[in-house]
Nucleic acid binder design. Structure first.
Lengths: 198, 198
DNA sequence: TTCGTCTTCCTAATCTCATTAGGTAAATCC
DNA sequence: GGATTTACCTAATGAGATTAGGAAGACGAA
């Protein structure tokens, strides 16, 4: 190969893992939907074609970033909730989601990327459900109510944070922080008064 | 122009409105993210470049589909809620969202497409907030609690339906329909017992 | 009817991005 | 130190977005 004068080729030393990690950083900076092989290659200091040694294609790249984000979020959640119970645990878990979304918007979007069923079951998504279930132990909910409550909490976390990130609350008062706090209060109340008629 | 033998050119007779409407149909069939000028042109029976007489670019096309979906959803919601109050109204509004998402997945995704602030304020998004607020009149919530509750409802609708559409509930029991019903019960209970401490 | 204008649609060209094929050289293992 | 592996490159292809410029249908006015 001809590198002009004497320029020795310096390898970037990439691995699949490192590429995905850099992809996640990039997602936070330019948005998950703008993470493309071309853009990521620049960030890695490598030609676009070279990425294909590490990742199969653009879609798999996004999938890998999604799995990374899910795992990262599950780790953070597990740590935040450790040793807590009841409302404290609920608030901690909720805030992990919101903080993560505000700090890592690209990764958070990635975490909601649609996975194929086979990828989904081996993902950290499962741990998320288990964690939520764990904090519900502080409330007195038998099945199937517990599952319904898990789904409600997942919906609220995902929904609120998604709308907030999309700017849905930014053009009205009061600020979203206040709504968040009151909504968590309300959820705590609700979980203790969960309707069991039927 | 040379159309070979005698073939007379037959116009498709497109208008911006029709293009956007066809784009919405296409979104439901192949997914909002796969709606591209190229694909839509095929559907319209026209060459790709010709679309640009009707829509500025790919991004504006998506924006227009989003605005269409928001307006459609707001219309449906207004009709569904008319004459109802309290829990009936709540359930009706909630089901409009879920049914719309199941029937028109592409449009529903479109409705969550990020709009620029100026587009957002003139969109039907505003009507959605008003409708939700109207429903809360059946519950006794003064400001700022009402705003917080509006945001919770929006979060739950958006979050639950989004997760359901993404397949989030499809690999566990019970079915999502049961969770939905119980969650609506729970929200009704919550709105009547909304915490007002502080 | 015929003229003029407006608008729809086309061809052609350009640019960017994803992806594959095939080769070179650095790193690694024996 | 030689062979294998692998990180990386150049080159080519193909698809999608977008623009420029032109032809021909639609439609109103004379």
């Amino acid at each position: 190969m001809d590198y002009g004068m004497v320029a020795t080729m310096v390898r970037a030393g990439l691995t699949t893992d490192r590429v995905v990690r850099l992809g996640a950083e990039l997602a936070d900076e330019i948005g998950f939907e703008h993470v493309t092989p071309t853009e990521l290659a620049k960030r890695c200091g490598v030609k676009t074609a070279s990425l294909y040694s590490h990742v199969k294609n653009a879609h798999e790249l996004k999938t890998e970033i999604a799995l990374l984000a899910l795992a990262e979020l599950a780790d953070l959640a597990a740590t935040a909730v450790a040793g807590l119970a009841g409302k404290d645990a609920l608030v901690a878990l909720a805030n992990v989601h919101r903080d993560y979304a505000l700090e890592h918007p690209g990764r958070f979007t990635a975490a909601r990327f649609r996975l194929t069923p086979d990828k989904a079951v081996t993902s950290a998504g499962v741990r998320h459900a288990e964690l939520t279930r764990a904090i519900l132990r502080g409330y007195d909910l038998a099945e199937p109510h517990q599952t319904h409550a898990v789904r409600l909490l997942g919906s609220v976390f995902s929904g609120f944070v998604g709308l907030e990130a999309a700017g849905g609350f930014s053009h009205s008062t009061p600020g979203s922080q206040e709504s968040w706090a009151e909504i968590l209060d309300a959820l705590d109340v609700l979980l203790r008064a969960w309707p069991r008629t039927k």
